[in-house]
Design a protein around this nucleic acid. Structure first.
Lengths: 338, 338
DNA sequence: GTGAAAGCGCTAACAC
DNA sequence: GTGTTAGCGCTTTCAC
């Protein structure tokens, strides 16, 4: 194992003290311009890399940030983490990944076992059903900054990055109206979830703005899965009044809706518009392609990481709440001419 | 910022020396059973957690393993990393993620800038087109263990985890034959890629075993995208002899093939069987659902990480090559009765 | 079986 | 502007 070059080596070769080398390398204090250049040159030549364990020990900081996510095997979270990684890498930070499998118990055990001394900060998206968030507050109290992304803990006073669910839904429904649909149903998520309600409100307000009425039975609450989307749609088709468009709370349910419509030989687009939410790559793969509201997953990761780094570097950085807009991606499933 | 409890604190309280505490905690050397118990009890009570920076500095090891992947926003790699994470977490290792965006330049720059002193080992899946792998050899030479997963660097003597492309393809084609298809085409990847060729050979050998002939124009080399799958299929349909089944090198291309068949109103399953490779979740979402060979993504991650940990703990652990089998998932796209 | 002390690589007072 | 020194939390000889 080749001995890694240290500042001591550089100091010896250049006949200066280690502190001078340290100062030159970090560009702190005044160092004679010429000796500084010599040091920098030699460091580059020897391919010197600082030992993070040592810097960490000496100044109580590591270059690690923890990232706690429910899972990463879907489009949304894997994109979020890619955004985080980009910022972290550019700033010479490592990301340490923890996956909770969306289980509150595992989340708790991860947080409890966290070695805070090896973490400068934490980026977290809480598990669903994680009702108590005391464990996060504890960490913050102990001095480790935490930034929430996407799934935030309401009651904790720290920075949060979310997407604009309300306006995304509003825009989705307005798009349907513009395309000439007027009997618009909403297959929603379960009642009582924050972002589900925001999307519902966006739906209601868009209809209101355009003086379009809805019907109670056109709003169906159920789970997030494709099967739910299918069942909900069958239910809608059986109703007294059949809608001519469906706004689904996410792409999965929209796809379920499309499958149900296909089985009933109802022409998607022409007879019944369908719009989703997320912009999973699958939207483009299916036929007809699915109109949706693209969530700013990558930017959520990036912004979250940038904010966390500010919390880390500035001791008294004030918490920010950032809401990022989504973007309508119009495709075939809402084209009347399709 | 609450002061984290250190072995010094424990030592002071219990009136023993720090070395005794250290020894007790790590279960090394002989420590009086009773004092050891007292130490362990107090450590648990105070919620003592070792400072990885300090242990790392002292014994030249960190608890970090680097993971270098081309991207993580697809099903395969996000599942691989979930597997890695699980093993790492169970063994008290952190994973530090690097994403190359499948760019050889970025890969090189990441590897060159790696602070090896903060990494105990490296798990890597090389970028495509990354022809020179000297940078990995350098790292190994400097004493950091490297394990390759999925996309391996052929010429480097270290552990490698791959999936069984040959037998997966063989099984896929044999499945088609069992279902009664006999004119089987293969839409392959680009020529010259390792795993593409293995899948091609599996295809050829399965046909040979069953004394079924193929035709030169039934084997088409092109890219991995859905569009390529579509184009290839249109090409096949125009040919002199129309095949009655298509084995696609991956699910993406299989989906492209299905889209092309739908446009031509050819019944998938009954008139033309289609089989893919990977088992992307989309296989279940589309209609008809897509038969495929499931790649053992999770196990690849897990096994890779386990192997790396062995390399880290045992100085002279001999390199292993592990080939994990895939699994046939029969769905509608290869049902003649569908 | 246990303690004292040196040292891992680096930073930060403090002197000069 | 630069060197000396102590110390971050832990492990590890080396004594006893």
């Amino acid at each position: 194992m080749a001995h890694a070059v240290t500042i001591k080596d550089i100091a010896k070769i250049l006949n200066v003290s280690v502190s001078t080398v340290s100062r030159a390398l970090r560009d702190t204090h005044d160092v004679n311009k010429e000796t500084k250049e010599r040091i920098l040159a030699l460091a580059a030549e020897l391919n010197y890399k600082p030992n993070f364990n040592a810097t960490g020990l000496a100044q109580g900081s590591t270059h690690n940030i923890g990232v706690v996510l429910p899972f990463i095997t879907n489009y949304y979270f894997s994109t979020v983490i890619t955004g985080i990684q980009e910022v972290a890498y550019d700033n010479n930070y490592n990301i340490i990944l923890y996956i909770t499998n969306d289980s509150p118990e595992r989340e708790l055990s991860i947080i409890r076992n966290l070695s805070l001394s090896s973490l400068d900060g934490l980026l977290v998206s809480v598990s669903s059903n994680s009702d108590s968030c005391g464990h996060f507050q504890e960490i913050i109290n102990e001095g480790t900054p935490v930034v929430f992304i996407d799934r935030v803990a309401r009651n904790i006073d720290t920075s949060k990055i979310m997407q604009d669910d309300y306006n995304g839904a509003f825009e989705a429904v307005e798009h349907l109206i513009e395309q000439g649909y007027s009997k618009i149903a909403h297959i929603a998520g379960p009642k009582g979830l924050d972002f589900t309600e925001k999307r519902l409100n966006g739906y209601l307000d868009a209809l209101k703005k355009h003086n379009i009425s809805t019907r109670e039975e056109w709003i169906i609450y159920s789970g997030f899965s494709q099967e739910c989307g299918e069942t909900d749609t069958i239910h809608l088709l059986k109703g007294e009044q059949r809608p001519d468009a469906i706004f689904a709370v996410n792409d999965r349910k929209a796809i379920g809706a499309m499958l149900a419509l296909k089985k009933k030989h109802i022409a998607i687009g022409r007879e019944m518009g369908v719009i989703g939410f997320t912009d999973d790559p699958i939207c483009e793969l299916i036929s007809p392609s699915l109109t949706t509201i693209a969530e700013p997953a990558f930017d959520i990761g990036r912004t979250g990481c940038e904010l966390l780094l500010k919390h880390i570097s500035k001791k008294y950085f004030h918490p920010h709440e950032v809401i990022l807009p989504g973007k309508l991606i119009a495709r075939e499933s809402t084209m009347r001419s399709y």
